[in-house]
Design a protein around this nucleic acid. Structure first.
Lengths: 218, 218
DNA sequence: GTAGTGACTTAGATTCATCTAACAAATATT
DNA sequence: AATATTTGTTAGATGAATCTAAGTCACTAC
């Protein structure tokens, strides 16, 4: 079994790799807010355990084993988030911090039970896919709202870079997963969009926001 | 805030004090399966933090502050057990291990929510009182079944020394909290009891079992 | 193609929770 | 009361995860 600390390194490596492809020690250090030398020695340790491929001065890569372990942690995280929202009534902005802790529990029955009570969900409350029991993730490709054209009608499928503040921002505007959104206009100079949905006929969304909303075209 | 480790010492001290009054370093060491010198230095550390009264070669005592902290951890443990049983469908024999881990989470909202969803329960699934939000415990005095007389009719109010095996033993015999039990006879030589309840007309319970069943006389 | 900057590594210190070994105090036994 | 046993304490070591300081590698810019 791996320590709480090791699990956080694995998860960070996994997430960074999916965001940017290769992962540098430096990025990892920044992500975890842990100084480089510490990261460096942990990488050697994880290499010993065959969880990462480590070579001096080369980018970091998870091994297959490492990916699987990371996937299983992320599975626990996302199942937990789903449970907190669906079965306990938390808002999607409130669950990340709690799930960050629960993901490290060694309690297979607990996660099995959550999974069953939720009906074996495939996505978490933010639309991110939940890895399966082997740690594998089934990537679903959505488009960014920012890459859609005026006139398109889309369905909100997932949100990314989900800080609490951003999620609260979405709450205030009733922007929820599954929502049907019509793009009325796009401002050329800043990429902001005017959209309509529900009873809102002209809501303004900045480019930053549109970059974080993933949609399916209808 | 206290570390996971410190919390376990506090909880063990609290429980031992309630079982036996005074607590020796030796008992604590055995309970936690941690060697004496380690316990010793932790006691000094907790004394620094004003959580225990420590004097060389004297029994250990929690300070008021220590009792409160311990009570709050036990509160989290018992709320969790209740939630796992009531809202997630676990059997009472399955929840201890999971709750041992969840009790250490720093997630006030999570425990608040469980408390609310449960309707602010006063006891856990084993009949033990749940400390209030200030860490105070309201002791309820029940009698041991073993101290009742033949002919008594009692209600099962709590079970103590609840190992998983013991709880499974009770499951098999349909012995649940709230159950009305009639004492038909007591064997003098070994203290075992013959009791009836539900459709069971002559169930034999050893003295060991009767010592662990707490009841209210009816 | 050398200098400079940023990324990476090594070396060594610190803190926490644990251990073993050895010693001291308190308690029990005869 | 003297001795043996149990309990508690001190000293010092270990491993995990962190740090700072200092040195090395590699890419970028002229």
């Amino acid at each position: 079994m791996h320590s709480y600390t090791e699990e956080n390194y694995l998860k960070a490596l996994f997430n960074l790799a999916n965001e940017k492809g290769e992962v540098s020690a430096n990025e990892l250090s920044k992500r975890l807010v842990i100084k480089m030398p510490t990261v460096n020695s942990m990488m050697k340790k994880l290499a010993e355990k065959k969880l990462v491929h480590y070579e001096s001065y080369k980018p970091l890569r998870l091994t297959e084993k490492g990916k699987k372990e990371a996937g299983l942690i992320i599975r626990k995280h996302r199942l937990t988030e789903m449970f907190l929202v669906q079965n306990m009534g938390f808002g999607w902005e409130a669950v990340h911090e709690i799930a960050e802790q629960i993901e490290h529990l060694h309690a297979p029955d607990f996660f099995e039970k959550m999974d069953a009570l939720l009906g074996y969900p495939k996505i978490d409350p933010h639309g991110s896919p939940i890895p399966d029991k082997t740690g594998k993730i089934e990537w679903i490709h959505y488009e960014k709202l920012s890459s859609c054209k005026a006139g398109d009608t889309v369905k909100l499928a997932a949100v990314i870079h989900t800080t609490d503040d951003f999620l609260k921002f979405l709450n205030v505007r009733e922007l929820q997963l599954g929502l049907k959104i019509k793009i009325k206009a796009i401002e050329k100079f800043d990429g902001s969009m005017v959209v309509s949905y529900n009873k809102r006929t002209a809501e303004m969304l900045s480019h930053t926001v549109c970059e974080r909303l993933l949609v399916e075209k209808l």
